[in-house]
């Protein structure tokens, strides 16, 4: 009897893992950028995150660079998995499903490429500044 795992469950499990990673990384990211005023009340060492110096600091940090790339990848996977789910609930023929999946992958790869290129170019100082 077939006891192998099927693609649907594998994708769903990957989606859950991605969600967990996004939860942690995006939680930290949004906390840092949207609750910075409150954080400054706790620690005076917390300076404004949107100033150019802070942007450069983060861009040069390997940890930040890696976390940005990971967050972008996981967020795109989680988000586009959701969009794929919604669209295949509406259009579910094998042909339509294949097109939707291809579309989601293309959009995901394109956005991931743009975002990752930005982060890496900035990190390695290739901006020509």
């Amino acid at each position: 009897m077939n006891t192998g795992n099927l693609r649907g469950t594998r994708y769903w499990a990957a989606n859950l893992v991605a969600a967990l990673i996004v939860l942690v990384l995006l939680g930290l990211h949004l906390g840092m950028f949207h609750l910075d005023g409150l954080l400054r009340q706790i620690t005076s060492a917390w300076s404004r995150p949107m100033t150019w110096n802070r942007v450069v600091e983060r861009g040069e940090s390997g940890w930040f660079t890696a976390s940005y790339v990971l967050l972008l990848g996981m967020a795109l996977f989680h988000g586009l998995y959701g969009v794929h789910t919604i669209l295949t609930e509406r259009w579910c023929s094998p042909r339509a499903s294949a097109r939707i999946a291809t579309g989601c992958w293309l959009v995901g790869i394109a956005l991931f490429a743009v975002g990752t290129a930005t982060v890496l170019v900035f990190h390695f100082g290739l901006t020509g500044e």
Partner: peptide, 28 residues
């Protein structure tokens, strides 16, 4: 569902907007 779609749309915009840092501090 709505919040998920909003977040994904925002992420798409965010990826392009934050690219402004490649053009230096003035652009940022």
């Amino acid at each position: 569902r709505v919040s998920g779609v909003v977040l994904l749309l925002y992420l798409s915009i965010h990826v392009f907007l934050t690219g402004a840092r490649l053009f230096g501090p003035e652009a940022w």
